[in-house]
Design a protein around this nucleic acid. Sequence first.
DNA 1: CCTCCCAAATGGACTAGACCAATGTCCGTC
DNA 2: GACGGACATTGGTCTAGTCCATTTGGGAGG
Lengths: 240, 240
Amino acid sequence: MAAKYLSIRDQILDLIAEMDVGEALPPERTLAPQFGVARMTLRRGIEEVVREGRLKRKHGAGTFVAGPKIAQGLAVTSFSEDMRQRGATPSSRTLDAGELSAGPKLAKRLEISTGEPVMRVVRLRLADDAPMAVETLHVPGRVAPDLDGSALDDASFYELLHEDYGIVLAGGVQTIEATVTDEPESEILEVPLHSPAFLFERVSRARDGQVVEFVRSVYRGDRYQFRVELQPARGPRDPS
Amino acid sequence: MAAKYLSIRDQILDLIAEMDVGEALPPERTLAPQFGVARMTLRRGIEEVVREGRLKRKHGAGTFVAGPKIAQGLAVTSFSEDMRQRGATPSSRTLDAGELSAGPKLAKRLEISTGEPVMRVVRLRLADDAPMAVETLHVPGRVAPDLDGSALDDASFYELLHEDYGIVLAGGVQTIEATVTDEPESEILEVPLHSPAFLFERVSRARDGQVVEFVRSVYRGDRYQFRVELQPARGPRDPS
DNA sequence: CCTCCCAAATGGACTAGACCAATGTCCGTC
DNA sequence: GACGGACATTGGTCTAGTCCATTTGGGAGG
């Protein structure tokens, strides 16, 4: 059985979906028996929603529906999801796809041997039909043997991984750097040469620890920005 | 009295400090009575540490000291703190300081009237004595009437705010964009003209909602990067 | 009519205990 | 020796209740 507090979280989400911003949630002591759980469990569920930024607690006053969600920064795992959260319609165009054999650097990233086959797909990512990013995806051959670009035009790569290959992503590491576009990138993204851009590099792993993908994305700096809501900053050692 | 779980968190941190990476923490059922709290409270404390990335739990096995912390991205509230986390020694040099009257844009950001006095301090931020960022700080005159650059050479602005003016920061909003350095920035940061850079803009508020500062920072793209550990992505609505 | 204070309502913290779920070990079996 | 299952250990969740801290609104008193 799924954890109760997760179910509570979903019910809370349903509840606030029909409420206005600023409106107060019923008191915890009222909600808990309504949902048939202890107050502690209810609180655990609410906490999840608060952490997602959709509710705001105020000690002594109540729990209130938060304003439109400010993107929580870097939990960018999926272009499509990211764009939808930003209120844009994502789409995709495959520019190139094929198999190659891993060079030393690529082999290291994917944690395979040099020379092993690797599937490579280059995609242009669009938001509201305007170029947003160029994404180069590398997948070890043994992970997705017959991957080709056509399947990726619409579908999410992650869904495809799950449905066709039974692979569930467990996590990864992403780095973000500032860069400028080179010539081919400028052309594809329709920006001047040496325009500001973000460079994302991500390595994702499956549950067994195996590297599933290495993605390198170049985002247009003029269209993409991060927006982070800063907390009162209870730092690593400063509860004062 | 401070919350018990926060005290637990600190004790756990002390405990971990003397342990090796990968070593297991004593079981919760042992630690709880040792610290004189209920297991639930102990867990709450441990959870804090886990969220900071210094411990890793493994259901059925134990709780283990995590490897060197991977920076959790964008919770950047303080340059000094950020640099220390990255293993560098922060320092600072004030380049310019003075009072000016708010133009329309600045007034809007600070939520004051056009023409009101604003204190402005430009600082070069260094990591291990090498230029890392240029930071321009704007503070409404009525918040810190007699602010001058000299006080900021060593001290943290936030500490100063707290100690001299009794202001406690409650949060803020930060945006991050990709940009390139202009001429003065290039010179100060000692990089070629039009080098890749990050542009941070932050607006911070006190507990009463009043805007306390507007900061604009330009970070060297060749020295600064984000590194984010991605979670299994329990998205807004996908607990599956 | 205004001010100040207090009490009710609300979220926050904590407890002691129960049971569930994942993990790893150890031992018997083959 | 290799396999497999029972079991002890560990973290994960949940409960029902108590007490604390903060906020807010309304009533007493000026």
